[in-house]
Design a protein around this nucleic acid. Structure first.
Lengths: 225, 225
DNA sequence: AATAAAATCCGGGATTTCCCGGATAAATTG
DNA sequence: CAATTTATCCGGGAAATCCCGGATTTTATT
C-alpha cells in the first residue's frame, strides 16, 4: 500500500456524501478524490481520471428517467470499461436477489447502508486488493437463510475458503492464545513459517494485526468456538 | 501458573470420564489427578490429597439411594470442608433453577454438557483463579430469558460487568487493530495505561495474550461488531 | 468516612510480533 | 503440463507486547 486508495463516491444524497467523506477521511489509506450525484458526472470523471474504488449507491434518484442508467448498469459499464476500478455497492436493499444481481454485474463488494463506516472502509480495502466482500449483516442474513447459495456460489465459497487449511489451523491455535513459537512446536514447523501464515492472514483480511484479525475471524464465524 | 491445576473428575459414566480425561490432557495447565464414580470415592480421596478443581456431574446414578449425597450436597460439603477446592458443575440440565441452586451451593462455575471441552477448560482455569463462570450457551439462554437475574444477580452481573467501562473502550479499539500507542493517542492517555488495561483484561479473562482475549471477547459478544 | 475498585501513570527487560525481502517444494487447478 | 496457490523456511531490525513490580488519584460502595 504505497499510495492511498483513490475513491470516487456516487450517491445522490448530499448529507450521505458529506458524512461518508468525513468518515473516510479518518482513514490513512483512503482518499476521496471525487463525488457525483449521477452517472453522467461519474462517467465524465472516469474518462479523464483514474479511480481505484467506486462507492456506488445502487438506487439513485431520477432513475425513472429511462435515459440515465441505473446502478446495476453503471456497475456493468464501469467494470467493463474501467476494469482497474473496483466497485463497492452501497445500498439500503440487502435482499439476496439484489445483492446477487449487483455482484453479477461486477461489483467486488456489497455493503448495506445499515452497516457502519468500518465495514465500508473494510470493503474498500478488500475491493482494492481484488477481494470480494459482503458486509457482516448481509452476509449473516444470507448465510442463515441459505438463499444466496443458488445463484452466487463462487462468492460465498470465496468467503468460506478465505483462509487456507493450514492458515485455519494456525488461526485456531492463535485463538487459544498460542504464540508463534507454541504453534511451531505444536505443528512441527518453523516459527518463521507460522509468522508467515499469520502475516498472510492479516494481509488477506486487510487488517492491521493479529488482534484485529482475531476479532474479524471470530465475528465472521471462522472459529469453532 | 507455576504448577499445573490438579483436577478431580466425578462422573458416573465411564465413557465421559475417558473422553474428558483425554481432551483435558491436551491442555498444558491441567492435570487430571483422579476420577471417581460416586461421592464416597471422592471424599475418601479428598481426605488424603489436595485438589484444585473438582469437575462435578450433578446428577449421578444411584442417587435414589438416600444414603449417598446428591450433587448439590456434594458441592456444599466440598466447598465447606475443602474451601481451596473449587467446584465446576457439569450437567445436562441447564435451567435457571438448577444452575442457581448449584451456584448457591458454592460452585464456582457451571458448564452445560452441551458445551465443548474448551468451555470446560476455560471454566477450570477461571474457577482455579477464583472467578465465577457460566458457559456461553447457558449464559445466553439465561440472559435472554431474564430468568436468572432474580436469584443470582451477583454472578450474572459479574459476567456483564466483566470488563470495566474503560477496559471495554480499549477492547473496542483493539478490535479495530489499534496498537497501544494508537489507543493512547485516541484516548489522550499514556501508552503504559493502555498496556495496563490490556493486561488487566487478559488477567480477568484468564487468557494468555490479547489475541486470545479478542477471540474470547468476540465469541462472548463483548464487541459491538 | 473508610474501604474497595477503577483509572491513571511509570520503568526495565524479556519475548513476541511486525515488516522488509526473499526462496523452495508440493499440491492444485486450468 | 504450465501456472498458481499453498506450505514451508530464512534473516535482520524495528516495533509492540508481555511480565515483573510498583504508585497515585478518582470514583464508587458500604
Amino acid at each position: 500500500m504505497a499510495d492511498r486508495i483513490k475513491v470516487f463516491h456516487l450517491e445522490d444524497y448530499k448529507i450521505l456524501r458529506d458524512g461518508i467523506r468525513f468518515l473516510l477521511s479518518q482513514d490513512q489509506d483512503i482518499d476521496i478524490i471525487g463525488e457525483a450525484r449521477n452517472a453522467t458526472e461519474l462517467l465524465d470523471y472516469l474518462e479523464k481520471n483514474s479511480v481505484d474504488v467506486l462507492i456506488l449507491d445502487i438506487y439513485l434518484d431520477g432513475m425513472e428517467d429511462w435515459r440515465t442508467p441505473d446502478g446495476f448498469e453503471i456497475c456493468g459499464i464501469v467494470t467493463q470499461q474501467y476494469p482497474q476500478t473496483k466497485v463497492v455497492a452501497h445500498s439500503v436493499y440487502d435482499d439476496a436477489d439484489r445483492v446477487a444481481k449487483i455482484m453479477r454485474a461486477g461489483a467486488m463488494a456489497f455493503v448495506s447502508k445499515k452497516s457502519g463506516y468500518e465495514e465500508l472502509i473494510h470493503a474498500i480495502k478488500l475491493a482494492y486488493a481484488v477481494k470480494r466482500y459482503i458486509c457482516t449483516e448481509t452476509s449473516k442474513k444470507l448465510k442463515n437463510l441459505n438463499e444466496f447459495l443458488s445463484g452466487m456460489e463462487d462468492t460465498l465459497k470465496a468467503e468460506n475458503e478465505f483462509f487456507s487449511r493450514r492458515e485455519k489451523i494456525v488461526l485456531e491455535l492463535m485463538a487459544k492464545g498460542y504464540s508463534s513459537k507454541d504453534i511451531a512446536k505444536e505443528l512441527f514447523i518453523s516459527e518463521k513459517t507460522v509468522e508467515t501464515h499469520r502475516k498472510n492472514m492479516v494481509d488477506k483480511a486487510c487488517v492491521k494485526n493479529t488482534v484485529e484479525l482475531m476479532a474479524y475471524a471470530s465475528s465472521r464465524g471462522f472459529l469453532k468456538n
